[in-house]
Design a protein around this nucleic acid. Sequence first.
DNA 1: CTGAAAATGAGAATCGTTCCTATAATCGAG
DNA 2: CTCGATTATAGGAACGATTCTCATTTTCAG
Lengths: 145, 145
Amino acid sequence: MTGGMERQIGSRLREMGVRNTPARKEVVARLAGEDGPRSAAELHELLGGSIPLSSLYRTLAVLEEAGVLAPHHGTRGLTRYELAEWLKGHHHHLVCVECGAVDDIHLAAGMEETLESVVASVTAEATFEAAGHSLEIEGRCGRCA
Amino acid sequence: MTGGMERQIGSRLREMGVRNTPARKEVVARLAGEDGPRSAAELHELLGGSIPLSSLYRTLAVLEEAGVLAPHHGTRGLTRYELAEWLKGHHHHLVCVECGAVDDIHLAAGMEETLESVVASVTAEATFEAAGHSLEIEGRCGRCA
DNA sequence: CTGAAAATGAGAATCGTTCCTATAATCGAG
DNA sequence: CTCGATTATAGGAACGATTCTCATTTTCAG
């Protein structure tokens, strides 16, 4: 994670009137180093249990509220979080239907433009205020194939 | 729901060695009449409580196992079910980030082809065996906007 | 430094879901 | 049709992920 990103997040939290505490920094830093969204339990493990689960859940909720993290609703009743798009860039997901693992993928610029136009044409005629989109590709990951 | 679809599902269940019971028919028929995936709780409500939750969950599991229903992992760890693609056709979703409602959308043929090619080009280079895809468009639905 | 406001930690409570077991429905053989 | 075996159901206990509560601790402004 770049220092610039840390500063951006710091000022975002300040704007929202919440503090940028050590636990919040740890969670953000760890998520920044992962290549896909992670659940509370996964983060608890990744952080060596340094943050109790109850605090971790609250931390995730605060960071989501502040727009720093975005939830990803993957497999079987688990919510995973990742840095919001304005921090990590727009991307899509490969979701393993076997083990539930989620990896990020980035589309080539041309592909992304194509996708944007598909989304635009769909939402133009719907009573739906589109805020974002994600292409979820389901299948079997390398380990499960 | 067409009689043809009922017959298809009936023979599918027979092939799988499970019975096509009244509860299973009710669930399938109700889902066929909805325009988006529904959770166990929503179905329980929609069916007027005629099927107890524990039975409903098992019914959904059996129908998923048989390939009649497909799960959609939506808001906050809730699993909603819809008819599998071979029954209701390929489609995508509008997901309301406010209330969690999910509606189906169908892409114009040209758009869908474009999307297929995007998926194909992404998975060609990944160690990932793609089985399907869904474009999830997030935003605010008519009621929440 | 001090008091008010915000954050934390531990455990209880909640919610969606799954599991267990006794009962009931269904199918095939006779 | 009837019996026995198999499969499905209902109800409730159990479970895992998440949220809530509240007492304690940390942080910030004055």
